[in-house]
Design a protein around this nucleic acid. Structure first.
Lengths: 201, 201
DNA sequence: CGAACCTGTTAATGAGCGTTAACCATTGCG
DNA sequence: CGCAATGGTTAACGCTCATTAACAGGTTCG
């Protein structure tokens, strides 16, 4: 097995820089020459690592969706039976926040460039996303039984919007510290779900 | 003064269709021929109404930001002094939701294609956005005094993320009715702010 | 009437860009 | 040594696409 602390392979460098550039200027807005330049090689050299520009985006988006789903399943399994739905929901929220804070460019891509994929890739990504949402919906409904299923689904999408707002929270300088931001987001997400499930006044 | 119920002028048609197409496939993903075809004229005919493709996007984005800010100022003035901060905040939320539900393509563009603008236009849009945010921040801090100013700003951005999630809520068919959705979003936004300002456990 | 203007059209231009071709240095290994 | 694999390079191709040119039908109004 390859050690986790190895120098990043050229492929990984490319994916990372491509993610950043795609997030900044959009898929069509960045040229292969720019991506190449960002990793120190130039233009067509990328084709030694990827069959094309599309393939980079596809690998990024499939990777994101897969990671999110896998992480959520792991958290669900870890807590299965032994803790309440509310704690599981907290764990899901925490996982999503970690991702949103650590990989802001990927979060941006995630809901912005899906339509640029080949049909087969797009279908795969959507399927992964759907499973991720459904997993959340089930947990949310258990934690907030007053919610109907469509309401829960809407609430989940909205909370994703809330958590995915990290790219808009100051360009890494204005952020009041990662821990503070994570705590704030977590509280707001919980508050949003709670309010969705309790038609007060 | 031109009546509000006049047939939409050609310029307005173009802007509306351009907004829809830009939101669907991204600024660079849409050709001028497509925009033209969407309003029944073809390709270069658009140049009788706009100096270029960029100008359409610019007018759309400036328009959005301006409308949001103007609406918010009006709501603030209407309530000034006579009602509490909490009611003003409700009014702001309501206004933003109306916009997010009625003009989904514009909301999408709003935080997605800003970087494609000329420097001067982008600065203008950002300035309008900043004023809109600051207006919210002040009201939020009045309604939730426990929030520090940076926390309030982060909270506002996050709630924008929540409210702007409408494009992800089912392609207009799966929506449980506009009123229901608006109410749900409103409750969640209030709940999120409340949770942000009350470090419970 | 007729000149100006508005709003279209199609054809041409020219730049940008993804991709491929052709070529080359380095490394590992039988 | 020789040779295949790996990962680069630069030059060329071809397509897409925004923009401009050249032209034309209608309407306004002097």
């Amino acid at each position: 097995m390859v050690s986790r602390t190895d120098a990043p392979t050229r492929r990984e460098q490319i994916l990372k820089e491509a993610a950043r550039l795609f997030a900044e200027r959009g898929f069509h807005g960045v040229g292969v020459d720019e991506i190449g330049a960002a990793v120190g090689i130039s233009g067509p050299g990328l084709y030694r690592h990827f069959p094309g520009k599309d393939a980079m985006l596809a690998e990024l988006l499939v990777g994101i969706s897969g990671q999110l789903l896998t992480g959520a399943r792991r958290r669900l399994a870890e807590a299965d039976g032994r803790t309440g739905a509310s704690e599981v929901l907290d764990s899901l929220i925490e996982g999503h926040i970690d991702f949103a804070l650590d990989d802001r460019p990927l979060i941006t891509l995630h809901d912005r460039e899906l339509d640029r994929l080949r049909d087969s890739d797009r279908k795969l990504v959507r399927q992964l996303q759907r499973q991720y949402v459904e997993l959340w919906v089930e947990v949310v409904r258990e934690a907030h039984p007053a919610l109907t299923e469509p309401a829960a689904r809407s609430a989940v999408h909205s909370v994703f919007g809330l958590l995915n707002s990290t790219p808009h929270l100051g360009r890494a300088g204005t952020l009041p510290g990662r821990g503070t931001t994570a705590t704030l987001l977590h509280r707001m997400a919980r508050g949003a779900f709670a309010a969705a499930g309790t038609p007060e006044d």
